[in-house]
C-alpha cells in the first residue's frame, strides 16, 4: 500500500519534520510504580509504555522452573484503547510473539545463573501505540530491571531503522511504518555491541541492510544515554531526599 503523501521529501525531511538520522522525542522515568520491585515509564514519540518488574521470585507453575538458572518471563500487552480501532483485551498471536522475543533478549543480559528455579517477570503495558512499541517496551524493560536491582551484564536497549521512499532512516513513525518499504528493529547490549533482538520485514538490499543496521546501532547508543540519565536521576533524587 502506498501513502498518498510523500514520506520523505527531496531535502530529506520526513512527515514529522525529522531528518533521516533523527530519533523521535524520548522521555524515560524510573521507579514510577509503588507495588512493583522495579518500574519504568517511557514515552517515545506517540508511544507510551509502562513496565513493571517482579522478582526474582519462585517460578510458577513448577514445571517451568529451571533447576540451574532463572527464567525471564516478559509479557507484552496492549491496552484496548491504545490503538485506532479498539483492540480486544488479552493476548493475541502478535503479542505472544513479541513477548517471546523480548524474553529471550532480556535473558541474555540478566545474570540468570544466580537465581535457580526463579522467575523474573517483566510486564510491559502499551498504553498508547504509534509504531515501534516493541523497541519502546524493551528499552523500558531495561530500565525497570535496573530499578528492580536485578543483576545485569548490561542495560539492554532497542531501536529500529527502516526504509521509506527509497532512503534508509532511523526510528520509523506511524505513517512510515504503515507505508514504508522496510522496518528493522534491533536490540543490543551497548557495552559489547552484541545483538539481542533482530527482526526485519520489507525489502532491503545488502548495502541498505548494512546501512540500516549501523543506523539502528547508532540509535541504540543514543537511547542508551537517555536510559542511563533516567536511572541516575532516580538515585540522585533518592539521595537528595535522604539528605533532607
Amino acid at each position: 500500500m502506498k501513502s498518498d503523501r510523500e514520506l520523505i521529501n527531496s531535502e530529506g525531511r520526513r512527515l514529522d519534520g525529522r531528518s533521516p538520522h533523527d530519533l523521535r522525542k524520548i522521555k524515560i522515568e524510573a521507579g514510577v510504580l509503588h507495588r512493583a520491585d522495579g518500574s519504568c515509564s517511557l514515552e517515545w514519540g506517540g508511544n507510551k509504555v509502562l513496565v513493571a518488574v517482579y522478582g526474582p521470585r519462585e517460578a510458577v507453575p513448577r514445571h517451568v522452573q529451571n533447576p540451574l538458572k532463572a527464567i525471564v518471563q516478559a509479557r507484552y500487552n496492549m491496552a484496548a484503547f491504545s490503538v485506532e480501532d479498539r483492540k480486544r483485551p488479552g493476548p493475541d498471536r502478535r503479542s505472544v510473539e513479541i513477548s517471546k522475543v523480548i524474553s529471550e533478549a532480556l535473558e541474555k543480559v540478566v545474570l540468570i545463573e544466580q537465581f535457580p528455579r526463579a522467575s523474573i517477570d517483566v510486564n510491559i503495558e502499551v498504553l498508547d501505540a504509534e509504531a515501534g512499541t516493541r523497541c519502546a517496551g524493551l528499552t523500558a524493560a531495561g530500565v525497570a530491571l535496573v530499578d528492580a536491582g536485578i543483576p545485569l551484564r548490561d542495560i539492554p536497549v532497542a531501536c529500529a531503522a527502516g526504509k521509506i521512499g527509497g532512503r534508509v532512516v532511523l526510528d520509523l513513525g506511524k505513517e512510515e511504518d504503515n507505508y514504508g518499504d522496510a522496518d528493522l528493529p534491533i536490540a543490543i547490549s551497548p557495552r559489547t555491541g552484541e545483538v539481542l533482538l533482530l527482526q526485519m520485514d520489507g525489502h532491503l538490499t545488502i548495502d541498505e541492510f548494512n546501512e540500516a543496521f549501523d543506523l539502528a546501532m547508532k540509535g541504540c547508543y543514543e537511547v542508551s544515554e537517555i536510559q542511563k540519565k533516567a536511572i541516575l536521576q532516580k538515585y540522585q533524587s533518592a539521595a537528595a531526599e535522604v539528605q533532607e
Binding site: 510504580l33 509503588h34 507495588r35 506517540g46 507510551k48 491496552a79 484496548a80 484503547f81 491504545s82 490503538v83 485506532e84 480501532d85 479498539r86 498504553l127 498508547d128 501505540a129 504509534e130
Partner: peptide
Amino acid sequence: KVVNKAEGSARVKIGNTQVLCGIK
C-alpha cells in the same frame, strides 16, 4: 487526555493506587 489514541482517557491516583481508563 493521557492517551492520544483513545476517544477519552484519564489517569487517577488515590495515594499510591493508580488506575487508567480509556474510552474507545
